[in-house]
Amino acid sequence: MEALGSKKLMLNCKEATKLVVIKEFEKLSFKQFIALKFHLLVCKVCALFEKQSLELNKELKKIEEEKTFVLSLEKKEEIKKLLNELK
């Protein structure tokens, strides 16, 4: 982050997309915020990246919730046995 926009107001797409990713979780400095805002206004590709990145975050959470695995019966019995031994 330190390499980004300390002096300049013009970001390239590599820097802009990095700020897009950071902005999803952290507050940008005022300069970074303005520089990104300006970049996204003129660069439709990075603006698209921003939109898709946010959509992806949402979808990833849903995917995780829906993903289910079943622990084998053998392992369940084994754990039950071990728990009983503690009693």
Binding site: K67, V70, L83
Partner: peptide, 15 residues
């Protein structure tokens, strides 16, 4: 515990 949470915790860990 095993009945209620084993599969849930297993899914959580494996992911």
């Amino acid at each position: 515990w095993i009945t209620n949470y084993a599969d849930y915790l297993f899914s959580y860990a494996i992911y």
